[in-house]
């Protein structure tokens, strides 16, 4: 609460509106979401960590102390601090810290791209299903039910396994795993508002279906879809790394957390700590995205 009082003088009138009568509503929805986010230290902190992880992945060539692909026959599986390698070396003598930094690239790509694709496709399908009449709804939603009938890990493994593995097929299968869930959220939100009076009023005043969807439906559907999609990023990191761990995602020698976990696993009897590190990176990234998503959900006041 001390924060709030300190903030008062700098944020001028907008802050005062919070205490004023509800008739003097100054703040828009997004302003109040921003206000709530700014006063949520947990979300801010973990959001900062997420930003740092993403920045480290983007600027990996400038941050990483060594070349992540340079092997050394004599310097394999060395402990922390060996010849300037802060976190030691892996089973081929490559610098582990550099590989962890580079590994964030594929792990983040493999989680964010599928979620974005699934949001676009699933969201569109959901809005069509909710707005396009009975036949469209039945076809889309019953198809989604079939994909819902697989446990997510199983579906991801089955699809990418059948497609022969690799990063692209991993991303396609993750997107396919997420589409049904996002589609359901979008469909529910669309059906809920489709029968409200303002939609009818828009119809009556001659607005076409596309105009109504663009102006009235999307604004109400995007909120829940965005919140849900943000919670999927953490799941995608776990699943994507899991696929790489099974040998279905990123192929060696590319640096990837899941892949590193699976190759370093073979040397737990020589240097067990090294093997724990990539997993810890997966865990930290996933929990940060999870908590940020929780914070966004609370700030946007969305119930799923």
């Amino acid at each position: 609460m001390a924060d709030t009082t300190l903030m008062m003088p700098s944020t001028s009138t907008a802050t005062w509106a919070d205490d004023a009568a509800p008739t003097q509503q100054v703040r828009s929805y997004w302003q109040s979401v921003g206000y709530r986010l700014r006063h949520d230290p947990v979300t801010l902190f973990f959001g900062l960590v997420v930003v740092l992880i993403v920045l480290a992945a983007i600027f990996a060539p400038w941050i990483a102390p060594f070349d992540p692909y340079k092997e050394s026959i004599v310097g394999r599986l060395k402990p922390f601090g060996y010849r300037g390698h802060p976190l030691g070396t892996d089973e081929l003598g490559r610098d582990l810290l550099s590989r962890l930094i580079y590994g964030g690239r594929s792990s983040l790509l493999m989680s964010i791209i599928p979620v974005l694709c699934a949001t676009a496709i699933g969201g569109t399908l959901g809005v069509i299903g909710g707005f396009g009449g009975r036949a469209a709804n039945t076809i889309i939603m019953r198809t989604m039910d079939v994909f819902y009938a697989f446990p997510s890990v199983l579906l991801a493994v089955a699809l990418s396994g059948a497609m022969g593995g690799g990063m692209t097929s991993g991303m396609i299968s993750l997107a396919l795993v997420f589409i049904p869930a996002i589609c359901r959220i979008a469909e529910t939100a669309t059906t809920q508002i489709r029968n409200l009076d303002f939609i009818e009023a828009a119809h009556a005043s001659g607005a076409g279906t596309l105009t109504i969807i663009r102006h009235h439906v999307l604004g109400n559907v995007l909120g829940p879809v965005f919140v849900y999609a943000s919670s999927l990023v953490s799941v995608a990191i776990l699943l994507g790394s899991g696929l790489s761990f099974l040998g279905l995602g990123v192929k060696p020698p590319q640096a990837d957390w899941g892949l590193m976990l699976s190759t370093l696993r073979q040397s737990i009897y020589i240097n067990p700590i090294l093997c724990a590190l990539p997993g810890a990176a997966i865990f930290v990234t996933s929990i940060c995205f999870n908590l940020v998503s929780d914070g966004i959900r609370a700030a946007m006041d969305v119930r799923l």
């Binding site: 776990l238 761990f245 067990p272 724990a276 997966i282 865990f283 996933s286 929990i287």
Partner: peptide, 23 residues
């Protein structure tokens, strides 16, 4: 609970093996 849902359980398994079987 947040930790539970964010844990890569394959990694937890490896850590358990390191602790209970190796160490």
């Amino acid at each position: 609970a947040v930790m539970g849902v964010s844990l890569p359980n394959y990694w937890v398994g490896i850590v358990f093996v390191i602790l209970f079987s190796v160490e």
